[in-house]
Design a protein around this nucleic acid. Structure first.
Lengths: 202, 202
DNA sequence: TCCCTATATCACCGGCCGGTGATAAAAATA
DNA sequence: TATTTTTATCACCGGCCGGTGATATAGGGA
């Protein structure tokens, strides 16, 4: 008596993707494999090969699921008045969005620790989303002339990403705790101050 | 005829540590294990258990080897004149030091992706070294009052670390390339500008 | 009703992993 | 020389991994 499951392909595919997201979010990319995902999904690993063509295809499916995450998290109410305010919102929004999404954190860590073409595509999509949001909400705001805005902005974004990942993994960075909400308020204040001083008017 | 090796314990231990550093620097913490290290060292993995008590002890030995790396890399010639200059040197020095040491890069990535008490100790030591350097070369320079210097500084350090790790893993960050020396000049210019504007006098 | 296809499972393979007990052989000691 | 200690290797274990060919079975169409 081999107890087959619901025999609904779409449903099974969805459950596999869900299981993959769970395994990745909980255990990270280590221990992320066909066996673990299939166990979690309660089905045979063969289905991962049959429906997704292997782990890579499954990761792509996760990526498709993840598209638009940043956009929805970064939704801004009113248009910013200055370029400094625009960057300020970008940084703070990205910080909160990343802090609230463990899955994306794990993917970011994955990209750093074990680069692979598949994961690189996920990360690239995230970068594109950031750029798109910038372009959309920027309006006609322009950075002060003479400033290398892209370089400055990825510098700030990189800081946020590193601090969030370190917080998740170790609870601190370079000896400074990153756990309580007060800790994060310090970080956010620092980010805001930097954005304002860097893009100060006049 | 079982060909024993040189039968010099100190030498064998050193070769094991060297092999461990090589494996870690080349392949990262994935694939870092007793089998890989022993293969690389050309000896039996049993020796790793006998001499180091397992992988953890071996990692500790690497850490002992690595102590003082930052201090020697951050050696500064003349004392800085302003706090802004102090931070500027810290950031630029840390950037070059980290860029030039793949092993430390891999350890930093390890900490983010697969936190463990052993690796945490390595990372903590690095943080302490940064703090020590700051305390030593600061002299009587003080950050402008009203600024949360620790929060601001780890923000900048975190950015540098993230950018270096992303460069190593993917060659870019958020769509901005990080490969040629010109790319890094942009980053360094951005860092310097931020440090100066944040800690601007008056 | 019977058959056929889509769906899902099972059983098995080779390979690498961490870990350990027994053994060989060089070197020190007597 | 004979014995003990140190140094190093070997052979093996159970377990998990990714991957695949053969097999069962549910459900829809004839």
């Amino acid at each position: 008596m081999t107890e087959s499951r619901s025999r609904d392909r779409a449903r099974t595919e969805a459950s596999i993707v869900a299981a993959a997201r769970e395994v990745l979010a909980e255990d990270g990319f280590q221990g992320f494999g066909v066996n673990a995902v299939a166990r979690r999904a309660g089905c045979d690993k063969q289905l991962i090969y049959r429906y997704f063509g292997g782990l890579d295809g499954l990761v792509d499916a996760i990526g498709a699921d993840l598209a638009g995450w940043l956009e929805s998290s970064l939704a801004s109410e009113s248009p910013p008045a200055t370029y400094a305010e625009l960057v300020e919102r970008l940084i703070l929004g990205f910080l909160e969005a990343l802090r609230g999404n463990v899955l994306v954190q794990k993917i970011a860590a994955w990209e750093i620790a074990g680069p692979s073409p598949v994961v690189a595509r996920l990360t690239a999509a995230r970068g594109m989303a950031l750029g798109r949001w910038m372009a959309n909400t920027r309006g006609d705001l322009a950075p002060p002339p003479g400033l290398d805005a892209p370089a400055l902005n990825i510098f700030l974004i990189a800081a946020v990403q590193q601090l969030v990942l370190s917080s998740s993994a170790a609870g601190s960075f370079s000896g400074v705790p990153l756990q309580s909400e007060a800790d994060w308020e310090r970080v956010k204040a620092a980010a805001v101050l930097i954005a304002r001083r860097v893009y100060a008017e006049g």
